[in-house]
Simulated assay, not measured.
Amino acid sequence: MTKPIESKHSEQQFLRQPLSFGDRYPCPVCRYGQIEGIFWVDAFSCKFCRHIFTVDSLQQLRLEDTAQPLKWRWTGDRWVSTRSVATEESLLLIWGLGLAFVLIPTALVWLANHTFPALPARESGGLSFSALWTVLTFLSHGSIVAWFCLEYYQIPIYLILKLYVRRLFQPILSA
């Protein structure tokens, strides 16, 4: 009888390696700073991105200071995301809504511009006002969706730039 092959990241391995509040771990959000236990509180915090994490009974690290249900599991050398099935299923809906938010207003502006064209203007060689308005609609709605994606997926380079800008303007805002 053959012995079943155990995965490198089996459930037993996670439970055998409990997270210690006295140790430091790389931050799973910014991937730049390190998380360490907060004194007198059963929680971790990152000194760079300033997020707060808690550990549940399954030794999963949970991000507590956002509405997003983000959890990770420590493998001994890196964090592995533990996304829920509901999150995976709703991903297609979220991307569809984002695409609709960009394309529907742009299509409406384009349709209005071609249904009711502007009076002919002088030949300036550039974009007409209606074409410029359509492009600006696409870019503005696209930038909103891109910003939401950056905030949701917490891309490290975005987080680092966001924190540097926050630290740059902190003396001005606190005055």
Results as ranks from 00 to 15, higher is better:
residue 66 T to M: 02
residue 44 F to L: 08
residue 94 I to H: 04
residue 37 G to R: 07
residue 125 G to N: 05
residue 93 L to M: 08
residue 5 I to T: 15
residue 20 S to L: 14
residue 153 Y to V: 05
residue 5 I to F: 12
residue 161 L to V: 15
residue 135 V to N: 03
residue 173 L to K: 12
residue 53 F to C: 06
residue 22 G to Y: 08
residue 142 G to C: 05
residue 166 R to P: 01
residue 14 F to M: 09
residue 28 P to T: 07
residue 119 L to F: 07
residue 72 W to I: 04
residue 109 V to R: 01
residue 144 I to E: 02
residue 41 V to F: 09
residue 168 L to G: 09
residue 139 L to A: 13
residue 63 L to S: 06
residue 87 T to Q: 13
residue 23 D to T: 05
residue 153 Y to E: 11
residue 128 S to I: 02
residue 149 C to G: 10
residue 4 P to H: 10
residue 99 L to N: 01
residue 123 E to L: 09
residue 140 S to V: 02
residue 38 I to Q: 13
residue 2 T to M: 14
residue 38 I to K: 12
residue 56 D to S: 06
residue 154 Q to P: 00
residue 83 R to I: 08
residue 35 I to V: 13
residue 36 E to G: 13
residue 95 W to H: 10
residue 10 S to Y: 10
residue 83 R to Q: 11
residue 121 A to F: 01
residue 112 A to G: 07
residue 7 S to A: 15
residue 97 L to A: 10
residue 130 S to A: 14
residue 175 A to L: 14
residue 17 Q to T: 14
residue 56 D to T: 05
residue 3 K to Q: 15
residue 53 F to A: 05
residue 121 A to V: 07
residue 136 L to H: 02
residue 56 D to Q: 03
residue 49 C to Q: 03
residue 118 A to N: 10
residue 61 L to D: 07
residue 74 W to E: 08
residue 35 I to L: 04
residue 47 K to D: 15
residue 174 S to H: 10
residue 143 S to H: 04
residue 80 V to G: 00
residue 169 F to P: 01
residue 77 D to R: 09
residue 63 L to N: 09
residue 27 C to F: 04
residue 153 Y to R: 08
residue 172 I to E: 00
residue 107 A to H: 01
residue 174 S to V: 11
residue 29 V to Q: 01
residue 164 Y to A: 12
residue 150 L to V: 02
residue 25 Y to R: 01
residue 21 F to V: 02
residue 6 E to H: 13
residue 173 L to G: 03
residue 21 F to R: 09
residue 54 T to S: 14
residue 89 E to Y: 11
residue 91 L to S: 13
residue 14 F to K: 11
residue 62 R to F: 00
residue 127 L to D: 03
residue 8 K to T: 13
residue 120 P to E: 09
residue 69 P to N: 06
residue 30 C to F: 02
residue 166 R to T: 09
residue 2 T to N: 12
residue 37 G to M: 06
residue 169 F to S: 09
residue 79 W to H: 05
residue 102 V to T: 11
residue 162 K to C: 06
residue 83 R to N: 09
residue 79 W to E: 05
residue 162 K to I: 03
residue 24 R to S: 15
residue 155 I to H: 08
residue 2 T to F: 14
residue 130 S to V: 00
residue 55 V to G: 07
residue 144 I to R: 03
residue 34 Q to Y: 05
residue 157 I to C: 08
residue 49 C to L: 03
residue 9 H to Q: 12
